[in-house]
Design a protein around this nucleic acid. Structure first.
Lengths: 174, 174
DNA sequence: CTTGACGGCTAACGACGTTAGCCTTAGATT
DNA sequence: AATCTAAGGCTAACGTCGTTAGCCGTCAAG
């Protein structure tokens, strides 16, 4: 049973707001995630949002929490081997490009995160690497690099990214 | 002799502006790179900048060009082996974190780039990979992932990133 | 019946990118 | 020499952004 701290620690109204914020982000990208646009979507005015969140960063923090929780779930589901775990990571990231970017572009606000969440998201990878943190970090870096370079349009349009992925994933096995 | 298209195609005044923009970015980060702040630094008013660049994106494009050129130079210098080339990449990126982020976060505006620049920046890596594009892309993804996750504070503070780097770099050798 | 929390609202501020329109300077053209 | 033009400044202002101040209605608990 997945622990969803978002469900616990947020009031219902806050959760509604976060849900709409997420929809706005995923549908139209980070530039469209505006306090006014979000308020519109909720049928209220922008200043009213500040009755629930102190600022936009606090709202985005909840999106980061959400993304971390879902990543953890995705990795826990497909974590029988390193390749399958990495594939699960990639699949989740590519399925939620804007959320993934929001999560990874800023620096992680560790003090404000639910306790243990970061560790929980990292655990499946660490386990499948037999506790070798260096290997785990290197594999993460590769997976993140592949995904984010693709999302940011840094590879040529005709590049075969699945092939590059396989090449990299193979390198991390032996 | 390094080809610096920035030197060729930009008027002297434009080059001064780009130079100050770069300094502002590198010293105080992307949030500080404001048309008004940049103008202040040049002793002029913000609207005057639009006599030289159509918009902020055009200015940032020149910073991307600069970063790509310097990356190409850095890679051409230390390109005798894959590990040394990757190390050169990492060294450059960590030495210019804000410029590197600006370069890699947005999607690459290929139509507006000097012709051949992207290929030139990629060439050393492709060559050292013996033309194996999949291997080259995988290695790039790993290097970028390591660097950007570090710059974005995504690794724990006590993580030994040099060790993780070595682990990953070794994986790409065999 | 009152009180206070909850959750809306309007008006406004400062910073941002940007546009319109004016003016000076200096070199080139006639 | 007189004139035209391009370069490169300027001020004023607009629309959008996040955000703050302050007001008001609703409604459950004392």
């Amino acid at each position: 049973m997945p622990e969803r701290s978002t469900t616990d620690r947020l009031t219902p109204r806050k959760r509604e707001i976060v849900t709409e914020a997420r929809a706005l982000l995923e549908e139209h990208g980070a530039a469209a995630l505006t306090m006014r646009a979000l308020a519109d979507r909720l049928g209220i005015k922008a200043p009213s949002l500040y009755k629930h969140f102190p600022d936009k960063a606090a709202l985005e923090l909840e999106l980061v929490v959400l993304s971390l929780e879902e990543t953890a779930e995705a990795l826990e589901a497909g974590s029988d081997s390193l390749p399958s775990l990495m594939k699960a990571y990639r699949t989740y990231a590519l399925a939620h490009p804007h959320l993934y970017r929001l999560n990874t572009e800023r620096s992680l606000p560790r003090e404000d995160l639910p306790e243990g969440l970061e560790a929980r998201a990292a655990a499946p990878l660490v386990r499948v690497c037999g506790g070798d943190m260096d290997a785990a970090r290197a594999a993460w870096a590769f997976a993140h690099g592949m995904v984010i370079l693709q999302l940011n349009g840094r590879f040529p349009d005709d590049a075969d990214l699945s092939a590059a992925w396989e090449t990299g994933a193979d390198a991390f096995e032996g």
